[in-house]
């Protein structure tokens, strides 16, 4: 059983939550296989404890985090966020975590740091899907520094009041609620501050389909399917997709003056 976590709810959502069973059985986590059901069936090989995360790159004070110890010292928040997958489905999930900004401030980024790169574990023994070339491994994602510092951006360590199940990215994952789900890298082992926009796995595999920004945008279709609507897991009819997944008021200013059809 997953250890319970104490957290104070800081962000609510006026929407029904997606049932835990759905959140933990319907996952895209290609390190464990290509079917949605593969992660819940096969992620038992992952050893999320002990686990260390290296935070470094262009910083004054690089550090290596022991996730278990660190969770004990933090005051955790519960945040209810919408999660919109690039494939056209969505969920509402009660994450438990903490703002990434705090961690980034602790390592003191150098002036030259402009982006943050997140790297997922790359161990085929724990993640059998790495033996297939579905993507260029290890899984890498990235954010602009101001996106990473935004108060909505969190590192999650739990959901539904417990530590993260393996299939949801244990023990530590990113959650960026205004971007398509794949931006929220799972089972992170390294966070690096870098000067140039980092290469990210999906952007590298099909740049015409998965942009670096990948902000949820109903007006910019994926080349193969429409992004104007989505199906909330548990519902049969589609609902309209909101710009920035409904977080426009908080984040739209990050992209002022940018052509979002070009920087999709």
């Amino acid at each position: 059983a997953l250890a319970p976590l104490k957290a104070k709810r800081t962000i609510s959502l006026g929407e029904d939550l997606t049932p835990l069973k759905a959140v933990t059985s319907y996952n895209n986590f290609y390190e464990f296989g290509l079917d949605k059901s593969d992660p819940s069936e096969r992620a038992g090989t992952l050893r999320p404890s002990p686990w260390t995360v290296k935070v470094g790159g262009l910083v004054h004070k690089p550090l290596t985090l022991d996730v278990d110890q660190w969770i004990g010292k933090l005051s955790l928040e519960e945040r209810l966020y919408r999660m919109r997958c690039v494939e056209g489905w969505s969920m509402a999930i009660p994450w438990i975590g903490f703002p990434l900004a705090g961690l980034l401030k602790a390592v003191e980024p150098l002036g030259s740091a402009k982006y943050v790169r997140f790297t997922t574990l790359n161990d085929p023994k724990q993640m059998p899907g790495l033996r297939l070339p579905a993507l260029d491994w290890p899984y890498r994602e990235g954010l602009r520094l101001d996106e990473a510092m935004h108060p909505l951006t969190i590192l999650a360590v739990g959901l539904y009041g417990r530590r993260l199940p393996n299939q949801n990215g244990a023990p530590l994952r990113l959650v960026v609620p205004w971007k398509y789900g794949f931006k929220s890298a799972k089972s992170i082992v390294a966070i690096d501050l870098v000067e140039r926009q980092p290469l990210t796995s999906w952007n590298q595999s099909q740049p015409s389909e998965y942009g670096f920004y990948s902000n949820v945008n109903p007006d910019v279709d994926h080349p193969r399917w429409s992004q104007s609507t989505e199906r909330r897991i548990g519902e049969f009819r589609k609902r309209p997709t909101l710009p920035f997944n409904g977080y426009g008021e908080q984040v739209a200013s990050l992209y002022r003056g940018m052509d979002l059809a070009k920087y999709f």
Partner: peptide, 12 residues
């Protein structure tokens, strides 16, 4: 209604 026989997204 919570059956997962057809996955969490039965339509897809």
């Amino acid at each position: 209604p919570a059956s997962l026989r057809l996955s969490a997204d039965p339509v897809a």
